[in-house]
Nucleic acid binder design. Sequence first.
DNA 1: TGTTTTTATCTCAACGTTGAGATTATCAAG
DNA 2: CTTGATAATCTCAACGTTGAGATAAAAACA
Lengths: 168, 168
Amino acid sequence: MSDAVDAIIGQWSEERPDVVEDLWPVQLFGRIQRLARVIDKSAKAAAAAHGVEHGEFDVLTTLQRSGPPYTLTAGAFIKASMVTSGAITNRIDKMEAKGLVERVREGDDRRTIKIRLTEHGHEVTRAAFADHLANYAQLLADVDRDVVDKTAEGLRHVLETLGDTTIK
Amino acid sequence: MSDAVDAIIGQWSEERPDVVEDLWPVQLFGRIQRLARVIDKSAKAAAAAHGVEHGEFDVLTTLQRSGPPYTLTAGAFIKASMVTSGAITNRIDKMEAKGLVERVREGDDRRTIKIRLTEHGHEVTRAAFADHLANYAQLLADVDRDVVDKTAEGLRHVLETLGDTTIK
DNA sequence: TGTTTTTATCTCAACGTTGAGATTATCAAG
DNA sequence: CTTGATAATCTCAACGTTGAGATAAAAACA
């Protein structure tokens, strides 16, 4: 069988046979990018059902899995989410307006602000995360579990090689 | 070894041991999303070196690999790029201003407009695509070719299962 | 033929992100 | 202390995308 990336590489083979040897990374990266789009769209819809944006959902789960007291600095989100400071400020602003999180200044360093999950934020996170996982499972319903595991293992190796070893 | 996704799942195991069983899709999808970000940023930088946006580069290569006469309709880009019509109109507007492509109305159907790669567009595409592939190879320089191939194979299977089998 | 439906593209306001710069606080020397 | 450098967050204009609606042409139907 063949997928969209096979078709793309097939086109290159016709048009630029001289570069075919250099297309092997596309076999991996092309598929990662296409899958990322599909997953993103699906995850976005699942989050929207609970009234939160994709990025906001990311903040919620990051807070939730950090454990008690469900509090992180803005800087922690920047590193965890791979986005810029402006995006985080914007996200927190909107989430604060929705009552999902609250900004608290505590501790000795008064430059840092801490983002704390509210009770309402907890409830939304629980419900949205359950739907999120159900959606993920649904997407992979027809894929062999063994293929999922082995492919994930390969991607882990690539991530490690690229230095993505921390979420702090 | 462990990567960022392992760390995330480790946190969930502590905070929500009840959902650990449902986290296996995260092993795959989480890594796809993180890798997509890394690849995107790198590819964006490579394209920017040639004065084109990421999405514009996508249009250029789609045209190039389509072969002579290097002409496609706007609708073809919408399907190939997985973006909305507004995004394509915007891209073509800017690329036309840069002299990379030109809109031509030819054929019997006067609703469709065709986007044609200009000579300048050809040159930019050639140079940018060479850098793009070099950048891809660089990212995977320290990864076993066998791992790349096997992982790509697994992703192909997932894409097929999700129905992503066409680029038209 | 005239009418409706469908198709292809464009318009445009709203949205989230970027990225550079500003602000404010802490740390390190002297 | 004071000065300079570093760090954390916020500000804001610019940017690309979305998504609903508009426009216009073609196809389907009556």
